[in-house]
């Protein structure tokens, strides 16, 4: 029987599971704890829930004055800006106040005014980055940066580097199930076959990605409750309308880069199909599926027709 090291921990509001096949347990354990340290380091830096994180500091002070950020945060903000431009603003990490607004099911006229104000003030165009000074300033006091749709992919990007630096040939990492990294090949040979769970028929795959050294990220506007029910969390805002996506749907993106997969899956949840196909064309080996659960069964759309191979 082939050896496989399995360990896990909590981070970023979910669970991180690592499978390291074909290694002796002591070596695998060392690699596992390097991964854990790295993930927690990133969380400590990026979490908006932790008052001492770099992002919290930015959210607190950048409304008043330029805040100097370190190289890592600077690079992260640039990556976000790149994806924001690539997706015509669909990937936008400033929309948290709108999510909070919709969570409260607004009714009154006063709230309609508040909505108009938020819609006007939110958006990455209001985050000003000074490339020379490496400083960041917000142009209004409603802006808040939330790296929720970024952190897990970023962590897996770093984990991928760490695994390759540690000469790990094969590994399977699941970060909350929605961000998966499959390093190298499956130990039985061939690529990893990553099935997408059908929530209406749990345990069945609605699609299968074949991954050798790559990642699958899923974004959805629902969480999976412990009883298996899907629940719209109103956390996905269409930046064009400022309103949450009401239909229960998910998008999965498979790409070599976990970070790209993470950012694009977030954006594709709100983008029209033509735009998705347009972006897909710009990248080799990018696979995309979208799943519509609204009708009571999973309707899968694959974006295969434009694949080059």
């Amino acid at each position: 029987m082939k050896n496989v090291y399995h360990n896990r921990f909590f981070a970023m509001g979910t669970r991180f599971h690592a499978l390291l096949p074909g290694m002796d347990d002591d070596t695998a354990e060392r690699v596992f704890y390097l991964m854990k340290d790295e993930v927690l380091r990133i969380e400590k830096k990026l979490s908006r829930f932790l008052p001492d994180s770099d992002i919290s500091r930015l959210n607190k002070h950048a409304k008043e004055k330029p805040v100097i950020v370190d190289d890592e945060i600077f690079d992260i903000l640039n990556a976000c800006r790149f994806c924001w431009q690539l997706t015509d603003g669909a990937f936008d990490l400033t929309l948290r106040p709108l999510m909070d607004f919709w969570k409260n099911q607004p009714q009154s006229n006063a709230e309609v005014d508040e909505f108009a104000q938020l819609k006007k003030n939110l958006g990455l165009q209001h985050v000003n980055v000074d490339d020379e000074k490496k400083s960041v300033q917000f142009s209004n006091n409603q802006i808040e940066i939330d790296l929720g749709g970024f952190g897990k992919g970023y962590a897996l990007e770093k984990i991928g580097e760490l695994l390759s630096d540690s000469s790990v040939e094969s590994a399977f990492i699941s970060f909350g199930e929605s961000s998966v990294l499959a390093a190298g090949n499956h130990p039985a040979g061939d690529s990893w076959k990553i099935g997408m769970n059908d929530y209406l028929n749990p345990g069945k795959s609605i699609h299968e990605f074949r991954v050798s050294g790559g990642s699958v990220s899923t974004s959805s506007n629902f969480f999976v409750a412990d009883n298996g029910m899907l629940k719209n969390h109103r956390h996905v805002i269409d930046p064009k309308t400022g309103e949450p996506i009401e239909q229960l749907r998910s998008v999965s993106v498979c790409s070599e880069s976990p970070l790209l997969a993470e950012m694009l899956s977030t954006a594709f949840l709100v983008l029209p199909e033509e735009k998705i196909e347009d972006i897909k064309e710009q990248y080799d080996n990018l696979e995309v599926i979208s799943v519509d659960y609204e009708s009571g069964e999973a309707i899968v759309k694959t974006f295969e027709e434009l694949q080059t191979e």
Binding site: F49, S174, G176, I194, M196, Y199, T218, F223
Partner: peptide, 19 residues
Amino acid sequence: NDAIPIGGATWIPNAPIRL
């Protein structure tokens, strides 16, 4: 090496978990 339905929406615990 079979396809296993392991990917999907984000799992969240009952209570919020930080760091």
